[in-house]
Protein backbone atom coordinates (compact mmCIF):
# COMPACT_ATOMS: atom_id res chain seq x y z
CA UNK A 1 0.00 0.00 0.00
CA UNK A 2 1.23 3.44 -0.86
CA UNK A 3 0.95 6.29 1.56
CA UNK A 4 1.80 9.60 -0.10
CA UNK A 5 2.06 12.93 1.69
CA UNK A 6 3.60 16.32 1.20
CA UNK A 7 6.27 17.79 3.49
CA UNK A 8 9.51 19.78 3.41
CA UNK A 9 8.65 21.20 0.01
CA UNK A 10 8.53 17.77 -1.57
CA UNK A 11 6.57 14.52 -1.50
CA UNK A 12 7.03 11.35 0.56
CA UNK A 13 5.98 7.98 -0.86
CA UNK A 14 5.86 5.17 1.68
CA UNK A 15 5.21 1.66 0.43
CA UNK A 16 4.47 -0.66 3.34
CA UNK A 17 1.95 -3.34 4.16
CA UNK A 18 -0.12 -2.87 7.29
CA UNK A 19 1.15 0.20 9.17
CA UNK A 20 -1.46 1.37 11.70
CA UNK A 21 -2.93 4.88 11.40
CA UNK A 22 -1.01 5.78 14.58
CA UNK A 23 2.28 4.65 13.06
CA UNK A 24 1.58 6.60 9.88
CA UNK A 25 0.86 9.68 12.01
CA UNK A 26 4.20 9.16 13.79
CA UNK A 27 6.02 8.98 10.45
CA UNK A 28 4.34 12.13 9.18
CA UNK A 29 5.18 13.78 12.50
CA UNK A 30 8.91 13.07 12.09
CA UNK A 31 8.96 14.98 8.80
CA UNK A 32 6.68 17.76 10.07
CA UNK A 33 8.94 18.32 13.10
CA UNK A 34 12.04 18.50 10.92
CA UNK A 35 10.35 20.96 8.60
CA UNK A 36 9.19 23.17 11.49
CA UNK A 37 12.69 23.20 12.95
CA UNK A 38 14.92 23.51 9.89
CA UNK A 39 12.93 25.09 7.05
CA UNK A 40 14.44 28.29 5.72
CA UNK A 41 11.07 29.03 4.09
CA UNK A 42 9.56 29.57 7.55
CA UNK A 43 10.74 32.69 9.34
CA UNK A 44 9.82 31.14 12.70
CA UNK A 45 11.85 27.91 12.30
CA UNK A 46 14.70 27.53 14.75
CA UNK A 47 17.24 27.56 11.93
CA UNK A 48 15.78 30.76 10.43
CA UNK A 49 15.98 32.41 13.84
CA UNK A 50 19.58 31.23 14.26
CA UNK A 51 20.45 32.73 10.87
CA UNK A 52 18.66 35.95 11.80
CA UNK A 53 20.71 36.14 14.98
CA UNK A 54 17.67 36.06 17.27
CA UNK A 55 18.34 32.55 18.57
CA UNK A 56 21.63 31.05 19.71
CA UNK A 57 22.38 27.56 18.44
CA UNK A 58 23.09 26.61 22.04
CA UNK A 59 19.54 27.57 23.02
CA UNK A 60 17.95 25.64 20.16
CA UNK A 61 16.68 22.09 20.54
CA UNK A 62 19.20 19.21 20.64
CA UNK A 63 18.04 18.15 17.16
CA UNK A 64 19.58 21.31 15.73
CA UNK A 65 22.88 20.63 17.43
CA UNK A 66 22.87 17.03 16.21
CA UNK A 67 22.17 18.04 12.60
CA UNK A 68 24.79 20.77 12.65
CA UNK A 69 27.42 18.49 14.21
CA UNK A 70 26.69 15.81 11.62
CA UNK A 71 26.90 18.28 8.74
CA UNK A 72 30.15 19.74 10.09
CA UNK A 73 31.62 16.26 10.50
CA UNK A 74 30.80 15.45 6.88
CA UNK A 75 32.27 18.76 5.75
CA UNK A 76 35.53 17.68 7.34
CA UNK A 77 35.37 14.14 5.95
CA UNK A 78 34.75 15.40 2.43
CA UNK A 79 37.35 18.17 2.64
CA UNK A 80 34.65 20.77 2.28
CA UNK A 81 32.92 19.30 -0.79
CA UNK A 82 29.85 18.95 1.38
CA UNK A 83 29.14 21.97 3.54
CA UNK A 84 26.29 23.35 5.67
CA UNK A 85 27.36 26.92 4.96
CA UNK A 86 25.91 28.66 1.93
CA UNK A 87 28.01 31.08 -0.11
CA UNK A 88 26.01 33.94 1.46
CA UNK A 89 27.12 32.77 4.90
CA UNK A 90 23.79 31.38 6.05
CA UNK A 91 23.61 27.95 7.65
CA UNK A 92 21.51 25.51 5.63
CA UNK A 93 21.16 21.99 7.00
CA UNK A 94 18.97 20.67 4.18
CA UNK A 95 21.85 18.46 3.09
CA UNK A 96 21.46 16.25 6.16
CA UNK A 97 18.01 17.05 7.59
CA UNK A 98 16.00 15.12 5.01
CA UNK A 99 18.26 12.08 5.38
CA UNK A 100 18.08 12.23 9.18
CA UNK A 101 14.26 12.31 8.96
CA UNK A 102 14.31 9.33 6.57
CA UNK A 103 16.63 7.44 8.91
CA UNK A 104 14.35 8.15 11.89
CA UNK A 105 11.19 7.24 9.94
CA UNK A 106 12.80 3.95 8.91
CA UNK A 107 13.69 3.20 12.53
CA UNK A 108 10.10 3.97 13.57
CA UNK A 109 8.74 1.55 10.95
CA UNK A 110 11.02 -1.25 12.12
CA UNK A 111 10.16 -0.52 15.75
CA UNK A 112 6.49 -0.63 14.76
CA UNK A 113 6.96 -4.16 13.50
CA UNK A 114 6.97 -3.37 9.77
CA UNK A 115 9.84 -5.19 8.08
CA UNK A 116 9.22 -4.78 4.36
CA UNK A 117 8.94 -1.22 3.08
CA UNK A 118 10.37 1.49 0.87
CA UNK A 119 10.47 5.16 1.70
CA UNK A 120 11.03 7.66 -1.12
CA UNK A 121 11.52 11.32 -0.23
CA UNK A 122 12.15 13.83 -3.00
CA UNK A 123 14.03 11.30 -5.12
CA UNK A 124 16.08 9.59 -2.39
CA UNK A 125 15.16 6.10 -1.28
CA UNK A 126 15.55 3.90 1.79
CA UNK A 127 14.39 0.29 1.67
CA UNK A 128 14.04 -2.60 4.08
CA UNK A 129 13.32 -6.29 3.71
CA UNK A 130 11.79 -7.68 0.56
CA UNK A 131 9.45 -6.65 -2.22
CA UNK A 132 5.95 -8.22 -2.41
CA UNK A 133 7.28 -10.84 -4.87
CA UNK A 134 9.78 -11.90 -2.15
CA UNK A 135 12.69 -10.65 -4.24
CA UNK A 136 14.88 -7.64 -3.52
CA UNK A 137 13.41 -4.18 -3.99
CA UNK A 138 14.26 -2.87 -7.43
CA UNK A 139 14.60 0.84 -8.08
CA UNK A 140 14.96 2.68 -11.35
CA UNK A 141 17.46 5.52 -11.76
CA UNK A 142 16.23 8.53 -13.71
CA UNK A 143 18.07 9.55 -16.88
CA UNK A 144 19.29 13.11 -16.33
CA UNK A 145 18.91 13.79 -20.06
CA UNK A 146 15.24 12.74 -20.03
CA UNK A 147 13.57 12.79 -16.66
CA UNK A 148 10.65 10.72 -17.90
CA UNK A 149 12.99 7.84 -18.76
CA UNK A 150 15.11 5.44 -16.76
CA UNK A 151 18.86 5.12 -17.17
CA UNK A 152 18.95 1.73 -15.49
CA UNK A 153 17.52 -0.26 -12.60
CA UNK A 154 19.29 -1.89 -9.67
CA UNK A 155 18.50 -4.35 -6.93
CA UNK A 156 18.85 -3.07 -3.37
CA UNK A 157 20.35 -5.94 -1.41
CA UNK A 158 20.94 -5.87 2.35
CA UNK A 159 22.81 -4.12 3.81
CA UNK A 160 23.16 -1.67 0.94
CA UNK A 161 19.59 -0.40 0.90
CA UNK A 162 19.93 3.39 0.86
CA UNK A 163 20.24 5.22 -2.44
CA UNK A 164 20.54 8.91 -3.21
CA UNK A 165 21.01 10.80 -6.45
CA UNK A 166 22.22 14.35 -6.85
CA UNK A 167 22.22 16.35 -10.04
CA UNK A 168 23.89 19.55 -11.05
CA UNK A 169 21.03 20.39 -13.41
CA UNK A 170 18.54 20.54 -10.55
CA UNK A 171 17.84 23.37 -8.18
CA UNK A 172 20.04 21.38 -5.76
CA UNK A 173 20.18 24.29 -3.37
CA UNK A 174 22.60 22.58 -1.01
CA UNK A 175 25.28 22.05 -3.66
CA UNK A 176 27.70 24.93 -3.89
CA UNK A 177 30.88 24.32 -5.75
CA UNK A 178 33.83 26.65 -5.51
CA UNK A 179 35.11 25.14 -8.73
CA UNK A 180 32.03 26.29 -10.63
CA UNK A 181 30.31 23.88 -12.98
CA UNK A 182 30.40 20.28 -11.92
CA UNK A 183 32.05 17.65 -14.13
CA UNK A 184 29.09 15.41 -13.40
CA UNK A 185 25.50 15.86 -14.43
CA UNK A 186 24.33 13.22 -11.99
CA UNK A 187 25.80 11.08 -9.22
CA UNK A 188 24.02 8.13 -7.60
CA UNK A 189 25.37 6.61 -4.39
CA UNK A 190 24.18 3.36 -2.81
CA UNK A 191 25.19 2.95 0.84
CA UNK A 192 24.20 1.16 4.03
CA UNK A 193 22.59 4.30 5.42
CA UNK A 194 20.77 7.18 3.83
CA UNK A 195 22.85 9.98 5.39
CA UNK A 196 26.06 8.61 3.86
CA UNK A 197 24.38 8.07 0.48
CA UNK A 198 22.85 11.54 0.41
CA UNK A 199 25.93 13.42 1.59
CA UNK A 200 28.33 11.62 -0.75
CA UNK A 201 26.08 12.05 -3.80
CA UNK A 202 26.12 15.78 -3.08
CA UNK A 203 29.87 15.82 -2.41
CA UNK A 204 30.65 14.03 -5.69
CA UNK A 205 28.64 16.57 -7.70
CA UNK A 206 30.45 19.40 -5.89
CA UNK A 207 33.93 17.85 -5.83
CA UNK A 208 34.00 16.10 -9.20
CA UNK A 209 36.32 13.25 -10.13
CA UNK A 210 38.70 13.79 -7.22
CA UNK A 211 35.88 13.45 -4.70
CA UNK A 212 34.52 10.45 -6.58
CA UNK A 213 37.83 8.63 -6.15
CA UNK A 214 38.13 9.61 -2.51
CA UNK A 215 34.57 8.52 -1.75
CA UNK A 216 34.90 5.14 -3.47
CA UNK A 217 38.15 4.38 -1.69
CA UNK A 218 37.09 5.53 1.73
CA UNK A 219 33.48 4.39 2.20
CA UNK A 220 31.69 1.14 1.42
CA UNK A 221 29.50 2.47 -1.38
CA UNK A 222 28.44 1.73 -4.94
CA UNK A 223 28.37 4.63 -7.38
CA UNK A 224 27.08 5.52 -10.83
CA UNK A 225 27.98 8.87 -12.39
CA UNK A 226 26.88 10.58 -15.58
CA UNK A 227 29.21 13.30 -16.88
CA UNK A 228 28.35 16.32 -19.01
CA UNK A 229 29.00 14.39 -22.23
CA UNK A 230 26.58 11.68 -21.09
CA UNK A 231 29.35 9.17 -20.36
CA UNK A 232 28.77 6.78 -17.48
CA UNK A 233 31.09 5.33 -14.89
CA UNK A 234 30.26 2.74 -12.25
CA UNK A 235 31.93 0.85 -9.43
CA UNK A 236 32.12 -2.97 -9.64
CA UNK A 237 29.41 -3.29 -6.96
CA UNK A 238 27.05 -1.12 -8.94
CA UNK A 239 27.46 -3.28 -12.04
CA UNK A 240 26.71 -6.37 -10.01
CA UNK A 241 23.57 -4.79 -8.59
CA UNK A 242 22.11 -4.02 -12.03
CA UNK A 243 18.67 -5.60 -12.20
CA UNK A 244 18.20 -8.71 -14.29
CA UNK A 245 16.35 -7.82 -17.49
CA UNK A 246 12.93 -9.30 -18.02
CA UNK A 247 12.92 -11.74 -20.93
CA UNK A 248 11.09 -10.19 -23.91
Amino acid sequence: MRHVFETMGTVVSLDAAGPSPALLADIEGIFADADARFSLHRVDSELSRINAGTLSMLDAGPEVGEAYALAAEWRSRTEGCFTPTRPDGLTDLNGVVKAIAMRDAGAALVKGGIQDWTLVVGGDLLASGRAPDAGPWITGIIDPADRSALLCAIELREPRTAIATSGSAERGDHIWSAAGRSEFLQATVVADDIVTADVLATAIIAGGDRMLRTACGRWPIDVLTVDRAGRLSATPGFREALAVPVAP
Binding site: D15, G123, I138, G140, I142, A164, G167, L242, P245
Partner: peptide, 14 residues
Amino acid sequence: SQSAQVSNVNGATY
Protein backbone atom coordinates in the same frame (compact mmCIF):
# COMPACT_ATOMS: atom_id res chain seq x y z
CA SER B 1 18.27 -3.51 -16.68
CA GLN B 2 15.56 -0.94 -17.43
CA SER B 3 13.13 -3.67 -18.35
CA ALA B 4 13.11 -4.99 -14.78
CA GLN B 5 9.94 -4.29 -12.83
CA VAL B 6 10.79 -1.28 -10.69
CA SER B 7 8.79 -0.39 -7.61
CA ASN B 8 10.26 3.08 -7.19
CA VAL B 9 12.58 5.47 -8.93
CA ASN B 10 15.55 7.43 -7.74
CA GLY B 11 16.55 10.79 -9.13
CA ALA B 12 17.87 14.20 -8.26
CA THR B 13 15.76 16.01 -5.70
CA TYR B 14 12.36 17.13 -6.90
